[in-house]
């Protein structure tokens, strides 16, 4: 079996006296979708920001194996390299679109900016790629020149996805990517992510509160509570046979069947 593409070891983070994350370790492999579930405030988003190097932990390390096979310790590499990775090999879709998009430049401009920062030279090609990705996430191409300010919440989420996928990232961090989407678009986005994962080896860390999304998309799952990973396993096993009291409560609280 191959080496992990991303490895977290003993990550801890506090904000003042508040413990956001304690001693979290796991490995992520190519072609794998890993879900992180838990109530709000359990540390899910903090974990995602640590994994992508956006914030630094109090202790612990994150190791990323890059395209050339080199192991990079995310908190030890220069900031310039970290930023470069986040523009190319790593993608981050924020729950708050203001973090992931420039609201005052056009949708096409948002995608082109990432492509050009990632090394693409031609504006024409950037525009063509932008159109192609808008189609993949089911945004109308007629809205290419509109700014995200003129987009709905669900459209902004899809634009972030298009922007991130345009550079063919190897790892994608998703923070509640389907939260504001109506169900038919949600299904198509899930299928798109799964397809990229199985066909092109994209590895995904998915933070979600929607257990149905976790079930349909991810092979493995981490359940978080108060900054701790309290249960981890195969997604179907954890959801069908939860062991911890909190996980049982979480699974039994869903309306309908997940």
């Amino acid at each position: 079996m191959c080496d992990p593409i991303l490895k977290a070891a003993h990550l801890s983070k506090s904000y003042g006296k508040v413990r956001a994350l304690e001693d979290v370790s796991f490995e992520l492999f190519s072609s794998e979708v890993l879900s992180i579930v838990g109530e709000s405030g359990s540390g899910k988003s903090t974990l995602l920001k640590l994994l992508s190097g956006i914030i630094e932990p109090d202790c612990g390390r994150v190791t990323y194996r890059d395209k050339t096979g080199t192991l990079l310790s995310i908190f030890d590499i220069p900031d310039s390299l970290k930023r470069k990775l986040l523009r190319t090999e790593l993608g981050f879709v924020w729950q708050d679109p203001k973090e992931g998009l420039r609201l005052k430049i056009s949708a096409g401009g948002n995608i082109a900016e990432r492509l050009l920062a990632g090394g693409l030279r031609s504006f024409g090609e950037a525009r063509a790629k932008s159109i192609w990705w808008l189609n993949r996430v089911e945004l109308p191409v007629s809205r290419l020149d509109n700014t995200p300010e003129e987009y709905s919440g669900g459209m902004r989420a899809r634009l972030q996805l298009a922007k991130n996928l345009a550079t063919n990232p190897r790892v994608l961090f998703l923070d509640e990517p389907t939260a504001g989407l109506d169900v038919s678009v949600q299904a198509r986005i899930l299928d798109l992510i799964r397809g990229l994962s199985s066909e092109f080896g994209l590895a995904v860390v998915l933070v979600t509160h929607d257990l149905m999304v976790a079930r349909l998309l991810s092979q493995r799952i981490l359940v978080m509570k108060d900054g701790l990973v309290i249960e981890a396993g195969l997604t179907d096993q954890v959801l069908d046979d939860p062991i911890e009291p909190y996980t049982q409560l979480l699974v039994s609280s869903i309306l309908g069947e997940a």
């Binding site: 299904a187 299928d191 349909l216 092979q219």
Partner: peptide, 22 residues
Amino acid sequence: ILEIRTHTISYVSQFLRVIPRV
């Protein structure tokens, strides 16, 4: 276990559970 499921064991459940629209 994932490897074993991919190559060795196939499970037909009582209900089909898949991503809609596929």
